[in-house]
Design a binder for these strands. Structure first.
Ligand code: NAD
Ligand code: NAD
Lengths: 232, 232
DNA sequence: TCCGTTTTGTTCTCCCGTTCACAAACTCCT
DNA sequence: AGGAGTTTGTGAACGGGAGAACAAAACGGA
């Protein structure tokens, strides 16, 4: 029974192939590059062109795409629109995903105001904040609602994805409540490691960590410069 | 001559060991966990405790730390303060890094107002925006200055790290100008692949991509659920 | 129809990172 | 002093991803 699935042909529309995680992370980049090409009026592109636009090796690009199926034509390349649709479908952004944002402070407001989510398959259906003062005025055309409304909202809109933009101390509580309401994917901006059940996916974005990684390399560049001076 | 370096003992203070990239990305997480433990009054911790706090495997944690040196005591564990300092020193955040933010819109303002950067070794020294209207009022106690001031600011403060929070169309231009001014590390929030010289480090944060990765897994969970229903 | 050109899809190899497992080293108790 | 218990640091096995390289396939021109 398990084997049956593995034997399923690549092109089979409903085959649940397991795409490597590294590839999944790059598919959105290809999608973005294809959208740009499409906007420029390009109808066809080679793996080399697309690879340059996406900032990756062309062999890697072709291997990534081969996990989805054979959507190219040898000697010609890929049809931009067709490939774009196939990737969008594979990722799951041909439909709109309802999203709730919890914690409407500096970052939460910026996220709520960001138009890019909408055009990429996500719709912010509710903004939640524990602080009544935050609820005085609407943000991005949406009222800010009490955190207690979470369950109702998740139920009404069938929300599966939640964004946490609260302070770190509140994040685990918020995550627990989200999970209890049936949310199974969380994007976390709070600088804390969340503990959730196995079936819930968590992705974290930590801007301080990004800067620290840059700082590490920056420091090494400087050390190298000094060493060179000394040995010279 | 090349060999000499390889032979250098791990504990040697000035040894330029090459730490794996994956490890570098985790060091800030350990640093954060150690700071939390320290705040809670913990003076000593085992690799197992720290690993749980950081959300990683304890063997991986120990191997990561071993790249920095032997800072633990067998049978006892690690001194929290000591290890915290060693990691901070290795990353390079014992000193303060001056940072400029370009593009003071929704996201740029949120970043400017974020206090967490300061406590983690970064100091926002200037906010730049091309739009004169943006410069009417100060953000986070800093005036918003014209983009043309970049070179002066970079020169005056010795800025090595720049943050791009402009729309995608402007990002490559901004990056080029940054590089021309001597900035060698860039944190990019615009959804575009930046092209920069080899010696410049770029890290990108793309929130749409994060959501799309979650959507992919979410879709698979649902497919699985449907398949189960059908086969049941 | 056939051959040269182009470009995909895939195989193969190498490298990096993860994890296991254990010896070495340290503490504490008797 | 010695042994039991604990925890680190690391060697070795393993798995996954990156990239080179090539065969298969499509196209176009003669
Ligand atoms: N602002 C940034 O640029 C930035 C950068 C990196 C990381 N972060 C992280 O993102 C998170 C938010 O940052 P911020 O600057 O927007 O903070 P903020 O203080 O401006 O906003 C936090 C919001 O969360 C709300 N909140 C607190 N507890 C809550 C709860 N239990 N339920 C619902 N809402 C609750 C608060 O009322 C507030 O409105 C923090 O964890 C921060 O560390 C922010
Ligand atoms: N807001 C978010 O939550 C969010 C989320 C994901 C990605 N992003 C990305 O971050 C970037 C900024 O988003 P935002 O919502 O803050 O946009 P925004 O439009 O609110 O702000 C952009 C700012 O950049 C300034 N700017 C434009 N061209 C410039 C130039 N050449 N030099 C200097 N400044 C310039 C504009 O004047 C404006 O103030 C965008 O690329 C967006 O795609 C934002």
């Amino acid at each position: 029974m398990e084997k049956t699935r593995a034997v399923t042909a690549r092109n089979s529309p409903d085959a649940a192939r397991d795409i490597p995680e590294a590839t999944v992370a790059r598919l959105p980049v290809y999608l973005r590059a294809l959208t740009t090409l499409s906007d420029q009026g390009t109808t066809t592109c080679s793996s080399e062109e697309l690879a340059v636009a996406a900032g990756v090796n062309s062999a890697k690009l072709r291997k990534d795409l081969s996990y989805l199926g054979s959507y190219g034509t040898r000697g010609v390349g890929y049809d931009v629109e067709y490939l774009r649709y196939q990737i969008a479908r594979e990722i799951g952004v041909t439909q709109d995903w309802p999203v709730v944002i919890v914690g409407i402070g500096n970052l939460g407001q910026a996220l709520a105001n960001y138009s890019g989510f909408r055009s990429r398959g996500f719709r912010v259906v509710a903004l939640l904040d524990a602080d009544p003062a935050r609820r005085a005025e609407a943000v991005a055309g949406l009222e800010v609602r009490p955190f207690a409304d979470l369950e109702q909202i998740v139920h009404d809109h069938g929300v599966a994805i939640g964004v946490i933009a609260t302070p770190a101390v509140a994040a685990q509580d918020v995550a627990d409540r989200m999970v209890a309401c049936g949310i199974t994917s969380i994007l976390n901006f709070a600088p804390i490691v969340l503990s959730v059940p196995d079936l819930v996916d968590v992705r974290k974005v930590d801007l301080s960590i990004e800067l620290q990684i840059l700082a590490y390399h920056e420091q090494r560049k400087m050390q190298g410069a000094v060493t060179e001076e000394v040995t010279a």
